[in-house]
Design a protein around this nucleic acid. Structure first.
Length: 278
DNA sequence: CACGAGACCTGTTCGC
DNA sequence: TGCGAACAGGTCTCGT
C-alpha cells in the first residue's frame, strides 16, 4: 500500500485523535518490542529498547515514502516497504497477525508496525539526514517546479518509468502512481527521459502532482487483502486494469513489463515514438 | 551511468 | 480439489 499518498494518509491519521481519543503526539513511550529483528536497521535491538523508552513523540511527518517520527532526543524513521502499515491498538483488541515492532504508551494502547512481507525498515537515529538526504525532490513541494523536472530529465538517458520509480530522482512515486501519472501525461513508459520536450515535461509535472493529490484526497489506495480505508483504487485509469477499457479513448489497456515491474498502458493514449518519428 | 537478475519475505490468486 | 506458478503498493546489491 505504501506510496506517497498512502504514507501521507498514515501520517495524518497518526497526528489525529486515536481510538481512545488522543493523538500519538505528546505520548511517552513506556516500552518497546521488536518482534522481527531485521526490521531494525539501526541501532542494535538492545540499544534500541534502552534508547527509545521514555522518549515522547513530538511530531509526525513524511519525506518521500518515509514516516518521520520526531522524538524527544532522536528521530524514528519508518519505511513501510511493500506491505507495511502503522496501527493503533488498545489492550482489548485482538492483535494484528504480523506485527514486527510495537511501542507501548500509557493507558494500554500501542503503536504497531504491521508488515506481513517483512520488507519494511526502521531507523532510530539522531541523524535522519544520513538516510533522507539521498532522496530526490518532494513532488508536492511548492519549490518543485515543472522547469526543475525538465532540467532533471534532460541529462537522463533512461526509460522514464524506471526513472520515476528512482527515489533519488523524485521521492514518493511507486508503481501505481507512476503508471497513472504517465497515462494522464500521455507518455509511454519506455520513452527515454532526455527526449521529452518542455511541453511533455510540463504535462508530466502536472500529472504527477494531480494523481498524488487525488490519491491523498481519497486517503490512498487499498487493494488486495491489505485495506486501510482509502478508495483511490476505484479511480484508477490504467493501473490493475489490464483488459479493461481506457476511460479516455476506450482502447483495451495492456500490461507490459518495464524494469521488471508490471506496467499498465493505453496504447492509443500513450504511443511510443521512435527516434525519427514525430 | 544504465540495466537486468537475484535477493529479501508472506500471502493470495491463477491456471491446469 | 489440489498444487505449483505467478503475482503483489519496494529497494538493495552485484555483475555486465
Amino acid at each position: 500500500m505504501p506510496e506517497l499518498p498512502e504514507v501521507e494518509t498514515i501520517a495524518r491519521t497518526l497526528r489525529q485523535a486515536g481510538p481512545i481519543g488522543q493523538s500519538i503526539i505528546g505520548q511517552r513511550i513506556e516500552g518497546a518490542q521488536l518482534l522481527w529483528e531485521r526490521t531494525l536497521v539501526t541501532p542494535s535491538p538492545a540499544e534500541f529498547k534502552r534508547r527509545i523508552v521514555r522518549q515522547s513523540i513530538e511530531d509526525v511527518s513524511r519525506r518521500g515514502k518515509y514516516l518521520v517520527l520526531k522524538l524527544s532526543h532522536d528521530v524514528l524513521l519508518i519505511h513501510l516497504g511493500m506491505s507495511g502499515d502503522l496501527l493503533i491498538e488498545i489492550d482489548s483488541q485482538a492483535p494484528e497477525g504480523h506485527v514486527r515492532m510495537r511501542l507501548n504508551f500509557e493507558g494500554g494502547y500501542r503503536l504497531c508496525f504491521n508488515d506481513p512481507r517483512k520488507f519494511g525498515r526502521v531507523w532510530l537515529t539522531s541523524e535522519p539526514q544520513a538516510v533522507l538526504a539521498k532522496l530526490g525532490p518532494e513532488p508536492l513541494s511548492p519549490s518543485f517546479t515543472s522547469e526543475d523536472l525538465y532540467q532533471r530529465l534532460q541529462p537522463r538517458n533512461r526509460q522514464i518509468k524506471p526513472l520515476l520509480l528512482d527515489q533519488t530522482f523524485i521521492a514518493g512515486l511507486g508503481n501505481i502512481y507512476a503508471d497513472e501519472a504517465l497515462h494522464l501525461a500521455k507518455i509511454h513508459p519506455l520513452t527515454i527521459a532526455s527526449t521529452l520536450d518542455i511541453k511533455q515535461a510540463e504535462r508530466l509535472w502536472h500529472s504527477i502532482r494531480q494523481v498524488l493529490e487525488e490519491g491523498i484526497q481519497r486517503n490512498g489506495a487499498s487493494i488486495d487483502w491489505v485495506y486501510r480505508g482509502g478508495d483511490f483504487q476505484n479511480y484508477f485509469q490504467v493501473y490493475h486494469r489490464t483488459g479493461e477499457t481506457c476511460p479516455v479513448c476506450g482502447t483495451t489497456i495492456e500490461r507490459i513489463i518495464v524494469g521488471q515491474r508490471s506496467t499498465h498502458i493505453c496504447p492509443t493514449c500513450q504511443p511510443l515514438k521512435h527516434a525519427g518519428q514525430v
